[in-house]
């Protein structure tokens, strides 16, 4: 299946899951604040894991429908020859297919999907250019938009506090930065960065662990 078909399938699936019945609104209106750690695996720059940190706010629209507004910042070492910096800011809709909602010491599984804006900068470590007799230091950056889909679960330590584990696939739409680890004539590895004209798709796996606390309930009875 090519990337375009995969994208259409993601978008349709997300729309389908939004259309579920929302049930009794006992937890509707809750606002929670959370901190998060992310691990990201970009395939296009090689299979290198990035580590990130961020924050998030959730607003629960209905008993089985939550929203998550997040900001992340991730750094990745590319094989010791460069670095990748990614910043995400976005929103996900969380759907709870199960019956048990947030009871103490229970898991609450969910599926989620949404979109985000992304800033990426890829920077190569300096290399010696013998012709110019100087050190070259290259970097390229870009802005892009992305859509994401995944699944996860909350573990509810209390009715107001949970730890959440999420795994998502994020598909970026934007200009293409191609970063490849190369070896020069004298055997030194370096990062070749090229920014292509036009748009491209780039996907990555995004694993998040977050801790969240309900700070307000707008629909408190």
């Amino acid at each position: 299946m090519d990337k375009k078909n995969l994208t259409i399938l993601f978008l349709l699936f997300t729309s389908f899951t939004y259309g579920q019945s929302t049930g009794i609104n006992t937890r509707k209106g809750e606002i929670s604040f959370g901190v998060r750690t992310t691990e990201s695996l970009f395939r296009s720059s090689g299979n290198y894991f990035g580590i990130g940190a961020g924050w998030q706010v959730r607003y629960r629209m209905a008993e089985k429908l939550n929203t998550e507004w997040f900001a992340d910042w991730i750094t990745t070492d590319i094989g010791g020859v460069g670095q990748r910096y990614d910043s995400h800011i976005g929103e996900s809709m969380i759907i709870y297919p199960g019956k048990k909602m947030g009871q103490k010491n229970t898991f609450t599984p969910f599926v989620l999907g949404g979109f985000c804006g992304d800033y990426t900068k890829i920077q190569a470590n300096p290399i010696i250019d013998e012709e110019l007799n100087s050190n070259l230091k290259k970097s390229k950056d870009r802005w892009s938009f992305a859509t994401q889909l995944g699944f996860g679960t909350h573990y509810n330590f209390t009715e107001r506090f949970d730890i959440s584990f999420t795994s998502q696939y994020v598909l970026h739409f934007g200009s293409d930065i191609d970063a490849q680890v190369r070896t020069n004539d004298i055997g030194e590895k370096y990062l070749q960065i090229e920014k292509e004209k036009g748009s491209n798709l780039e996907g990555h796996i995004f694993i998040t662990i977050s801790a969240n606390f309900v700070i307000a309930d707008l629909c408190k009875k």
Partner: peptide
């Protein structure tokens, strides 16, 4: 604590 120091040399 888990993290990396990035600069202009290998992390």
């Amino acid at each position: 604590v888990q993290g990396i120091h990035t600069s202009d040399i290998p992390a």
